[in-house]
Write a protein that binds this DNA or RNA. Structure first.
Lengths: 328, 328
DNA sequence: GTGAAAGCGCTAACAG
DNA sequence: CTGTTAGCGCTTTCAC
C-alpha cells in the first residue's frame, strides 16, 4: 500500500505538504493541491489511520462492552451506538463480556491497550470502583452510577411505577415480578423497588422472582417461569423486567393453557422489536435507547471538544400499551 | 500512560529488553525478566497496541460490515463472529452499511485505512468486482461468490427445497413465497429457485412476492404482507425467506383472522430466537450461523498462518419443525 | 544475555 | 505557501 512518501515523490512535494492536503490544514496553492490529489488517486492512496493515531494520540475508536450481543435489547443498543458514533467519525470495537468478570477485565485492558477514546460499559460484574481507565472516559450505561465515572440510566423507578400501576388499573390483585439476576446489583433493581412500593400502596399481593445468572446468560427463562407459575396460585398479573422474559412468559402460558390477557395481564420492559411479534403483543415500558446511545457518544466526545456535560443522567421512560393487558 | 521507555528506565534496562519480555522472544535472564515485570506492574503498564500495529504491520482487527445490526439474523451472526474472533485475538470493528452503496464504500475504505487484517462483508450493494481491498482478505458472507474473493454461503437451494417440500407434504396447494429484495441479487435467490422447482415438480400453484428495499431497511413488511394476502385468494402455505418476515406474517394473519397453522401453514428461514417466541412457533430452515462465523474468521486468519483453505464454501442447512406447520 | 540504531507512516513545530 | 526536523511507542536487525 502506498504511503505518504510515495505520494509526495510522485507529486514532487514533501510529505508535509501531502499531510497538509489530507488534513486540509494551512495554506496550500490550488496547483499543488491538485497535483497531490492526482498522485493520491493514481496510487489509490489510503492514509494509514494507525500511524495517524500514533502521532495524534487519538484513535477515534470507542470500545463497547456488552454482556450479550444477540440479546434484543443490546443489539438495538449497539445499533444505535454505532449509528451515533459514525456521525462523529468514531469506530466501534465490539466486546462481548458474557457477563463474566474475567472477560470484562480482559476487554477493559484491551480497550486501554488500544488507546480507545472512550469506553461504554453495559456489563456489570467488575466492581466499578476498581476500574481504572486512566484518562480514558468511561460511561456506565444502565449500570449503577459511580463517582468519577460517567453514567446514563433510564428512569427505572418510574418504569416500575408505570408498569405496576397499569397492571393494577387493569384489575390485577396478585402480581408476580420477574426481576433481575440474583446477587447482581443494577439500576434495574429500581424497577423492583417501584413495584413493591406501588403494590403496597394499593394493597395488592405481590411476589418477586429473580433468575440465576445462567438463565440470563443463556437467555432462557422457561423453566423458571414455569416453576413460578405452578408454585404460585391465582396469579393475575406479571411484570417482567424485559420483553424477552415477557415473550417467554407468553410461551409458557400457552403451554400451560393460561390465556393472556384474559387470565393474566402481562407487562414487559425495553420496547424492543419482539414485543410486537408475539401473540398477544406485549405492553411494555419503552426505554429511550436512541437518546441513551446518543448521549453516551456525546459524553465521550465532549472530553475532546471541551464541552460541558453532566456526569450523570437519568432519562424518562414511557408506557406503551399493547394487547397483553387488554381488558375487554 | 507509561511507555516502554518508562518501564525500561525504572527497571534499569533498555526498551529492547522490555520489548523482549513483553513478546517473550529471545533469551532473557530470570533476574531481568522479573525486574521488568515489577516495573511494568508498578507503572501499570499497558503496551500501546497502536504502536505495535504500526511496526508489526498487523492490526489484529477484523472489519465486519452488515446491512443491519439489530436484525435478529445479523445480531446472531455478529455475536458468533465476535466470539470466534476473540478466540484468535482479533478485535471486531462493527460497521452498519444500512444496505446503501455509499455507506458500504465508505466503510470499506475505512477498513482499508485502518489496515484491518480482514473484512467480512455481509452487505450487498456494491458490485463485488469493483471492490479492491489490495491484499486484505475479504470474505463475502451470504453474498454471491466472486472470483478472487473468499465466500461462504449456506445451502440456500437445499433450504428452499426443504421448506417447500415440507409445505407440500403438509398438504399445501397454493403457496406464496416472500422472497428477497427487488433488484438485488443474492444467494438467497436460490431459495426462490428451489421453491419454483419444487412447486413445479409437484404441480402446486405458487406466487412470489419481493419486497422493496425500504421494507427491508425498516424491517417492516406488514403492509406488503397484508396486501399480498388480500390480493391472492385461498393461500394455504407461505414460505418466508426470514423468520422475521414469518413473524410478521403471523401478526398480519392474526389481524385478518386467518389461523396458522389451520388455514395457512408457514415456514421461515434462519432459525433465530424469535421463531420460538411467536404463537405459533415457526417451522424454519436453520442456518449454521456458528459454523459460518467460525469459518469466516478462519479464512482470514489462514492468510497469516499460511494455512491452506478452500476459497468458497457452501454449508448445509436443516429443517426445524415447529407449530406453524402442525397438521392435526 | 543485552544494547544501539533505524524505521513503521504520519503530524507538528519551526523556519524561511 | 512549502520544506526540515523531530518524535509518537514499539520492534527488529546487527553488534558486542
Amino acid at each position: 500500500m502506498a504511503t505518504i512518501v510515495d505520494v509526495a515523490k510522485l507529486a514532487g512535494v514533501t510529505p508535509t505538504t501531502v499531510s497538509r492536503v489530507i488534513n486540509n490544514r494551512g495554506y496550500i496553492s490550488e496547483k499543488t493541491k491538485s497535483k497531490v490529489h492526482e498522485a493520491m488517486d493514481q496510487l489509490s492512496y489510503q492514509p494509514n489511520e494507525i500511524a495517524r493515531s500514533l502521532t495524534k494520540q487519538r484513535s477515534n475508536t470507542i470500545g463497547v462492552i456488552v454482556p450479550h450481543i444477540s440479546h434484543p435489547y443490546f443489539s438495538k443498543l449497539i445499533s444505535n451506538l454505532e449509528n451515533e458514533a459514525a456521525k462523529k467519525d468514531y469506530k466501534i470495537i465490539l466486546c462481548n463480556s458474557k457477563d463474566t468478570a474475567t472477560k470484562e477485565k480482559k476487554y477493559l485492558d484491551m480497550c486501554k491497550s488500544n488507546r480507545v477514546d472512550g469506553i461504554i460499559l453495559c456489563s456489570g460484574n467488575v466492581e466499578y470502583n476498581m476500574i481504572n481507565t486512566g484518562n480514558i472516559p468511561i460511561v456506565l450505561l444502565e449500570k449503577n452510577f459511580e463517582k468519577g465515572k460517567l453514567g446514563i440510566q433510564c428512569d427505572n423507578y418510574q418504569g416500575g411505577c408505570l408498569a405496576t400501576e397499569h397492571l393494577i388499573k387493569c384489575g390485577c390483585k396478585r402480581i408476580v415480578h420477574f426481576s433481575g439476576v440474583i446477587d447482581e446489583e443494577m439500576p434495574a433493581d429500581n424497577r423492583e423497588k417501584a413495584f413493591i412500593d406501588i403494590c403496597n400502596k394499593n394493597n395488592v399481593e405481590y411476589f418477586i422472582k429473580k433468575f440465576d445468572i445462567n438463565a440470563y446468560n443463556e437467555m432462557n427463562y422457561y423453566e423458571y417461569i414455569k416453576n413460578t407459575l405452578s408454585e404460585i396460585d391465582g396469579v393475575d398479573g406479571i411484570f417482567a423486567s424485559s420483553d424477552l422474559i415477557a415473550a417467554q412468559v407468553i410461551q409458557v402460558c400457552y403451554e400451560l393453557n393460561i390465556k393472556i390477557p384474559k387470565d393474566i395481564k402481562l407487562v414487559g420492559f425495553d420496547d424492543v422489536e419482539i414485543s410486537q411479534l408475539t401473540t398477544p403483543t406485549i405492553t411494555t415500558i419503552q426505554q429511550p435507547i436512541k437518546e441513551m446511545a446518543k448521549l453516551a457518544i456525546h459524553l465521550i466526545d465532549a472530553k475532546y471538544t471541551n464541552t460541558e456535560i453532566l456526569e450523570q443522567t437519568i432519562l424518562p421512560v414511557d408506557l406503551v400499551v399493547r394487547r397483553s393487558t387488554s381488558v375487554e
